Simulated scan of single mutants.
Amino acid sequence: MDVTSEMVGNVNVIAVRGELDASNVNDFRRIVLPLLASPVKLLIDLSQTQFVDSSGLGATIACQRHAIAAGGRMKLCCMSKQVRAAFELVRLHLIFDIHPTREGALQAFAEAAEA
C-alpha cells in the first residue's frame, strides 16, 4: 500500500494505492489520523485501491469518526466495483458520502461550503 496526500483547494486528498487490509491498516491510520486533528475536508480517493478487507473498512470508519469529532468532513471517491462491493456488503455505503469521481466529490465540498 502507498498513500499520498495533496491539497486541492481547501480539500486534503488522500490517494490509496494497492490493498488496504490487515497487513497495512496501521500504516494507513498512522498517516491519515493526524490529518484529522483539526477541522478538515478530507477526500479519500480509492481509484487505485484494488482490495479492502474488514480491517480497511474499520480504518475508514475510524477516519470518519475522527473527522466528525474534529468538526471536519470526509468523502470517498472512485471506488472500483470490488471495493464498492465490500462497502455495500456491510452497508457502509449508507453512512459514507461516496462519489464516483474525484471531481464530483470536490464539487460536493464546494457546494456544501456555499450553502
Score class of each variant (00 low, 15 high):
Lys41Val: 03
Asp2Lys: 14
Arg102His: 14
Gly56Tyr: 09
Val52Asn: 01
Arg17Asp: 05
Arg29Asp: 15
Ala69Tyr: 01
Asn26Gly: 09
Ala37Arg: 15
Arg102Asp: 12
His66Lys: 14
Asp45Met: 02
Leu42Asn: 03
Ala108Asp: 13
Ser54Leu: 04
Leu89Tyr: 10
Ser54Tyr: 03
Cys63Asp: 05
Met79Arg: 05
Gln50Pro: 07
Asn12Lys: 15
Ala105Gly: 04
Gly71Asp: 04
Glu6His: 14
Leu76Val: 11
Gly72Met: 08
Thr49Lys: 01
Met74Arg: 05
Lys41Trp: 03
Gly72Leu: 07
Ser55Ala: 15
Ile14Val: 14
Leu76Arg: 04
Ala69Lys: 14
Leu94Ser: 06
Leu33Ile: 13
Glu111Tyr: 06
His66Tyr: 08
Leu106Ala: 02
Leu57Asp: 00
Ile31Asp: 11
Val3Asp: 03
Val90Ser: 08
Leu76Gln: 02
Val83Leu: 04
Lys75Phe: 05
Ala69Gly: 12
Met79Val: 11
Ala112Met: 07
Glu103Lys: 14
Val32His: 01
Val25Pro: 05
Gln50Thr: 13
Arg102Gly: 11
Val3Lys: 09
Ile95Val: 12
Pro34Glu: 06
Thr4Glu: 00
Val11Asp: 03
Ile31Lys: 13
Phe51Cys: 00
Ala70Arg: 10
Ala67His: 10
Leu36Arg: 00
Gly104Thr: 05
Ala70Thr: 11
Ala62Cys: 02
Ser55Leu: 03
Ala59Thr: 09
Ala67Lys: 04
Gly18Thr: 13
Asp2Pro: 02
Leu106Lys: 09
Ser54Ile: 10
Arg91Glu: 13
Leu89Lys: 11
Ala86Gly: 04
Ser55Tyr: 05
Leu35Met: 15
